[in-house]
Design a protein around this nucleic acid. Structure first.
Lengths: 226, 226
DNA sequence: CAAATATAATAGTATTACTATCATTTTGGT
DNA sequence: ACCAAAATGATAGTAATACTATTATATTTG
């Protein structure tokens, strides 16, 4: 089983990058060191210059993979959502109960990611932190519509769509499944961030899975199916 | 009544700006034209240079009011939340039923703002759009903790706290009132944004108050009090 | 009316986000 | 093993941004 999973390659919609970073050593370094660096210093302070220095390459070389740092962020979030969809499908496989599948999906979306060496040498926990604190900036921009056109958000939409279908299976009359799911996803990110920086906006207790418990109850109470 | 309300001055925590913009004509111009401009071109493209040109002043003069454009955004969001708290208190005044007060608070938080000339000549609808699309950037930054220290988010926290209290009044055993309220606020902003740009992440129907209805039902079902 | 304060005009700097050019290395096909 | 093509490195340059500094001119206030 481990053999089989060894090196699953997450494909990101082409068009986001100029050249597929998973196709070369330099590309992989850009990806993994980029994640490390953005997690450390944040998107604002992050530059291709700093990244180039860190991996012993040059600005110009990185620009051959990504048009600019915004596209790089789109690539990271897109990779994250493809990876998350993969994990979601995996965790729901062979589970009969629809309720149980929904529970598992919510748990996946509301809990911190855990590193899985099967997916390259990217620090997925760090990537999750980046998604929490920077992904809003990937779509809250004047380029949303263009970025949407090139498919930068398909993986995200697909995750939302999958969970929405579970909800409709449990309650075919529920009117707002997509709203509910996107509320859970974005909400969970915010709560984790608030817990760290603005605790008065949340009720997260250290050591408890408050976020997961809160959103699980919220979803089931809202769709009135449990 | 209109007389009485004529010119209510919203006070923003000092320390966010170097000099209170409501204290001078130039300051007021910076505020109102800044809102107009950010709504039009977005925070990324917005610069003090462009703003200065638009109001026939200079970069240096604006820098005497605000350290940088991030502080300016903090000022705008802070003003917005003070204004919103004011409206919230007003709308709940003299309403006996706690449920009704909560309903009204949710409606206020989930619906678009309407211009009210009593509060200076700022375009409040535009400011609301700015809060929707840019306010995430006001706290998703490496400076959060410092900005929090100087009180940049007190007005926001106060709004959350007020609504949380209503929830606790309806259900004193509910464990996550702050989570629920911040989820509603941030969620409503996201849904409005998605409706415009990423419709597959929401279920908003033009002409209907889907956002308000969704969050109203979500809150009452979640706290199990109606 | 003098003194203090606010604003305008102008100039300058470091950094950023790129683009361009050319040299060198690596790789893949025969 | 060798050549052509592709990838990368080295270096330089540009326009815009986010400021800071200085001095001059209004404007307000006591």
């Amino acid at each position: 089983m481990l053999e089989l999973l060894n090196k699953v390659n997450i494909q990101v919609k082409e068009g986001i990058c100029l050249k597929d970073p998973s196709s070369s050593e330099l590309g992989n370094k850009i990806f993994s060191e980029g994640v490390r660096m953005i997690d450390e210093i944040g998107m604002e302070a992050f530059t291709f210059k700093k990244l180039a220095d860190a991996i012993g390459s040059t600005e110009a070389s990185i620009y051959r993979y990504f048009e600019n740092k915004h596209k790089f962020l789109l690539y990271l979030t897109s990779w994250y959502w493809s990876w998350t969809e993969y994990r979601m499908v995996f965790r729901m496989a062979n589970i009969e109960s629809c309720e149980e599948r929904l529970e598992r999906a919510i748990a996946l979306l509301t809990n911190p990611a855990e590193n899985d060496l099967a997916f390259g040498n990217v620090d997925q926990e760090a990537l999750h932190r980046i998604v929490i604190s920077e992904s809003g900036k990937s779509f809250m921009t004047k380029d949303v519509d263009e970025d949407n056109r090139i498919g930068a958000y398909v993986a995200y939409k697909q995750c939302v769509s999958r969970v929405s279908e579970l909800i409709l299976e449990l309650n075919p009359n529920y009117k707002y499944p997509h709203m509910l799911v996107s509320t859970v996803i974005e909400g969970a990110h915010h709560q984790r961030y608030f817990a760290e920086h603005l605790p008065r906006l949340t009720d997260v207790v250290k050591g408890e899975d408050s976020v997961g418990e809160f959103y699980r109850a919220m979803v089931f109470n809202t769709i009135q199916a449990k």
